[in-house]
């Protein structure tokens, strides 16, 4: 079983480390915080590793590198006073996570993450950061804004955060052995081929095992054979699947997405459309409200002069 006490010690150390890292006036303990944080993460990993009775091999070295990068990026993101840097650090975290995904064999998702997440969402964030940049006053534009420089109630937040972490990990590690049993080793490798007629057809055609006029009747992944029906014969003929024909990650995701969650897909689409509409309406200028004649509409009021100014 996992050595829980070390985990909790790691949590505490991590909390203290982070505490030092959080932005506050005259913060001199940053370095020590970072070291402490990293050490805590390491200790956590070590605790997991030493609990050797967990079966299976250790994740390889890339995992450790990527997770440290991710954790460090995340910490830097929340501790860096400048919003732009925070966003950039976040992009680093996303990349690290993508790496982890690749580790886990979810390549498609890794790239999707990078393209959609880092590419689109975070870029929007950067736009907004630039748009809503607030210079305290004209003389020294890069002075730190008060509300960025100091964390709000750092101690309470950290304590609660890491208590939550401790509880989370405690529950997870005590709970993981009660997870529903995994299916035995995958009974039929590449089971998705049965559904991927197109893929099989294109591979067979590339390997000249099928003529253009023929079509695939069905595929039997267990026996790794496929039935091909040609216009000339009544019953389809059997074709041996080439050995290198395997289901890629994308395929499994595609099959699972469409076979098991078709409704959710549609709903996701609707959500996206609604979000787009919402964003458009929210960001409209008052003119739009005046046009439709309702004094309140979504009109959000005149831009005020800087807070505090008369």
């Amino acid at each position: 079983m996992v050595e829980m006490s070390i985990i909790y010690a790691a949590c505490v150390a991590g909390a203290i480390g982070l505490l030092f890292l959080l932005p506050r006036r005259g913060n001199r303990w940053g370095l020590i915080g970072a070291v402490l944080g990293a050490g805590a993460l390491g200790a956590g990993m070590l605790a997991l590793a030493r609990g050797s009775n967990a079966s299976g091999d250790h994740p390889d070295v890339f995992f450790y590198v990527l997770s440290f990068v991710a954790a460090g990026g995340a910490v830097r993101m929340i501790t860096h006073p400048r919003p732009v840097y925070a966003a950039l650090y976040f992009i680093l975290v996303v990349l690290a996570t993508a790496g982890l995904f690749v580790q886990l064999g979810a390549e498609f998702m890794a790239f999707a993450l990078i393209i959609v997440y880092a590419g689109a969402i975070l870029i929007t964030y950067l736009f907004v950061i630039m748009l809503a940049q607030e210079a305290p006053d004209d003389q020294h534009p890069d002075a730190l804004l008060d509300y960025d420089a100091t964390a709000r109630e750092p101690v309470a937040a950290t304590v609660i955060g890491f208590v939550l972490l401790g509880a989370l990990l405690g529950v997870m590690y005590r709970g993981t052995n009660q997870l529903p049993a995994r299916a035995a080793h995958r009974s039929v490798p590449d089971a998705e081929l049965a559904m991927l007629a197109g893929k099989v057809e294109s591979t067979l055609r590339d390997a000249d095992l099928m003529k253009d006029s023929e079509t695939i009747a069905s595929v039997d992944p267990a026996a790794r054979i496929a039935w091909v029906r040609s216009p000339s014969m009544e019953n389809p003929r059997v074709v041996e699947l080439p050995a290198d024909l395997h289901v890629a990650n994308v395929d499994t995701v595609g099959v699972s997405l469409l076979a098991e969650f078709p409704v959710s897909l549609e709903v996701a689409g609707v959500i996206l459309m609604l979000a787009m509409l919402g964003a458009v309406v929210l960001a409209r200028k008052p003119a739009f409200a005046a046009a439709i004649g309702s004094p309140h509409g979504f009109y959000v009021g005149e831009p005020h002069r800087k807070a505090g100014a008369p």
């Binding site: 997991l48 079966s55 091999d57 250790h58 994740p59 997770s67 991710a70 954790a71 995340a74 990990l169």
Partner: peptide, 14 residues
């Protein structure tokens, strides 16, 4: 493996 899973969960929790 279970061990790897624990690792990932640790990272996700952190």
């Amino acid at each position: 493996s279970m061990l790897a899973l624990n690792h990932y969960l640790l990272v996700s929790g952190v």
